[in-house]
Design a binder for these strands. Structure first.
Length: 601
RNA sequence: GGGGGCGUAGCUCAGUUGGUUAGAGUGACGGCCUGUCACGCCGUAGGUCGCGGGUUCGAGCCCCGUCGCUCCCGCCA
């Protein structure tokens, strides 16, 4: 007989009755009836009830066992009597009658109990992560993560992609997030950087002729955390393809994402491929964000024209961008509901206010009520109702601002809040869409200059010769240029960002020049890539869906720590391993590093 | 860097207008219990009320500061 087990704790069934079996696992739960002791023994695969009576030679050992001790039990599998069968357990028809027991490991009092699903403080859970990981929910989430990643790999390989590894110790990337730096021992004063993404490497792979690349790639960015953004490190399904148009990339990625989501949806609906494509500008108008949650049925409308009518005298909205968010059925809400929303808009969104009109049926005529309704004569109210699509019993909220972007953004936040507060979001669905035609550049108000709005490596949607001839002073034209740049969004979460890349060195130099980088500067910063593009570069493009966010969506959790094995806390500390920690003097000396701590005030 | 929320037993939480010895449930430990599966019953231990200062005859409660956790903004090509 094997030293530790003949079966796992999840596999014994009625057909095994009479078998002599050996099980090893943790004490999930102990029930002591004086003479009779039940132990639920748990391993990765399941739980099996084991029972011992005082006449067994194993009784003394079992009697002293406590929660989470690791034990090995040997005995015969017996059928449970009709009235003691537990239909809630896969192994509930049988039990193991213990006649040999040995202790493989004892356990101290538990700071986090494994049995049960009581909430525990995040700090304790992180410090004792190995205990937390034994708990049913987290254990299940991590298994789900593994299965999702396997499925992704299989689907990518089936589509002719190959997985390649790219360096972890590499060069600092000149754009984007803050880098993690690694000091070089051999080169005093010089540093490697951890990759923010394998962006340049995957493009170089295309230049090297590998055609269809993917990698479950670790990415490192030294930026502050959020609930859906790990501090420091995360994983992307990094993808790049040669000789492709935007549509080819979509056609390659859609079946993978759709397939994976269908596979793990467990009854939830997944929007069919091809996914809806929404131009950036349309998304900003209708949803007020570039990552719309399409489960939310509300559509924002531009109603500036209504407030600019000569018969409308509401000065606060004149000559401004005014966006309207419908609130179907909200007429029945009490005044306090509207007051609360306005307070939310002012405090949390920094809005000047949040105007609204409630529409009711008055003798067959749709009539507006509320603080600003009186500024709109019946004709203007009718026009408003028509544009927004309002009926009696609905309300409408207004977001007005001299700056178009600000008006759109507040409307977007109002739309999200109304969708939630009015219970309009069906959480049994996964709604995918592509956001396309992102602007290539944007105006940086602080520095009064033109910036890349997203990925500086994207190909502009502009005639090559005309692009090369652009005068940086021609701001209107430049700010109107779109890029072959696209995002995948699911349920209001940005899953990935991608682009058809700029593989033309002249266009690239020009693109950076427009964003304020001198040609010589670009030549130095992107020497590797520019140089490669001068030796025959294929047109190429790709994208990089976030693995962690995919798993979050499929696991139905709203925090990354529920789907990552050993996460750091919000301050980027690993409480279990004590990272970061100080280096020894010897280590620092070898690295030619001297620590200068910030002065405390 | 900024803003919000939270901080009372290992854990989840209660604690009245500032007033006697700070409670409950759960977990731990001990006892009883031969069919439980959130077993049951009885008992015991367990507290710097995050920390420091202040107001007061008296502070878990009020004030100031500070620390920790968390969520958000900035940031994340």
């Amino acid at each position: 007989m094997h030293a530790y087990r003949t079966h796992t704790c999840g596999e014994l069934r009625k057909k095994d009755v009479g078998t002599r079996a050996r099980l090893s696992g943790w004490v999930n739960r102990r029930r002591d009836h004086g003479g009779l002791i039940f132990i639920d023994l748990r391993d990765h695969y399941g739980i099996t009830q084991c029972v011992v009576e005082p006449d067994s030679p194993a009784f003394a050992t079992v009697d002293k066992a406590r929660s989470e001790w690791v034990l090995t039990f040997t005995g015969h599998i017996e059928a449970r009597t009709e009235d003691t069968i537990n239909p809630d357990m896969p192994t509930g028809e049988i039990e193991l009658r213990i006649d040999e027991a040995s202790v493989q490991g004892t356990a101290s009092d538990l700071p986090v109990p494994v049995f049960g699903d009581l909430e525990y403080p995040e700090e304790t859970r992180l410090k004792y992560r190995f205990l937390d990981l034994r708990r049913e929910k987290l254990h299940k989430n991590i298994i789900l993560r593994s299965k999702i990643i396997s499925s992704v790999r299989r689907r990518m390989i089936d589509q002719g992609f190959m997985e390649y590894q790219t360096p972890i110790l590499t060069a600092s990337s000149p754009e984007g997030a803050r880098d993690f730096l690694v000091p070089s021992r051999l080169h005093p004063g010089k540093f490697y950087a951890l990759p923010q993404a394998p962006q340049q490497f995957k493009q170089l792979l295309m230049v090297a002729g590998f055609d269809r690349y993917f990698q479950i790639a670790p990415c490192f960015r030294d930026e502050d955390a959020r609930a859906d953004r790990s501090p420091g490190e995360f994983y992307q399904l990094d993808i790049e393809m040669s000789f492709v148009t935007q549509d080819d990339v979509f056609a390659a990625v859609e079946p993978v994402l759709h397939g994976v989501f269908e596979e793990f949806a467990e009854g939830r609906k997944v929007s069919p491929a091809p996914f809806v494509r929404i131009p950036y500008e349309e998304s900003m108008l209708k949803y007020g964000v570039d990552k719309p949650d399409l489960r939310n049925p509300l559509i924002i409308a531009d109603v500036g024209s209504v407030f600019d009518r000569e018969d409308v005298a509401f000065k606060a909205f004149k000559n401004k961008t005014v966006r309207a968010v419908p609130a179907p059925g909200a007429a029945s809400q009490p005044r306090s509901w509207y007051d609360k929303l306005e307070a939310w808009a002012k405090t949390e969104q920094g809005a000047a206010g949040l105007g609204y009109i409630v529409f009711e049926d008055k003798d067959g005529v749709l009539t507006g009520k509320g603080p600003i309704a009186k500024f709109l004569p019946p004709e203007a109210q009718a026009e408003l109702a028509k544009i927004v699509g309002l009926k009696a019993g609905d309300a409408v909220f207004f977001s007005a601002n001299a700056k178009k972007d600000r008006a759109a953004a507040l409307a977007g936040q109002v739309r999200i809040k109304l969708g939630r507060d009015l219970g309009l979001i069906d959480d049994s669905k996964f709604e995918f869409c592509w956001i396309v035609d992102f602007p290539m550049y944007e105006w940086n108000e602080d520095e009064k200059k033109i910036d890349f709005s997203h990925n500086p490596f994207s190909m502009p949607q502009f005639d090559r010769e005309k692009f090369l001839a652009l005068d940086p002073a021609d701001q209107d034209t430049i700010l109107g240029i779109k890029a072959f740049q696209y995002d995948i969004v699911c349920n209001g979460i940005e899953l990935s960002s991608g682009a058809i890349r700029n593989h033309d060195p002249d266009v690239m130099l020009k693109a950076f020049e427009i964003a304020g980088y001198k040609r010589e500067e670009t030549e130095v910063k992107f020497a590797g890539m520019l140089n490669a593009f001068r030796y025959g570069a294929p047109p190429h493009g790709g994208t990089a869906p976030g693995i962690d966010r995919m798993v979050m969506l499929l696991a139905g959790v709203d925090n990354l720590r529920e789907i990552i094995l050993f996460p750091m806390n919000q301050r980027a500390e690993d409480l279990m391993m004590n990272a970061p920690s100080e280096a020894t003097l010897k280590q620092l000396r070898e690295l030619h590093i001297r620590v200068v701590k910030p002065e405390k005030e």
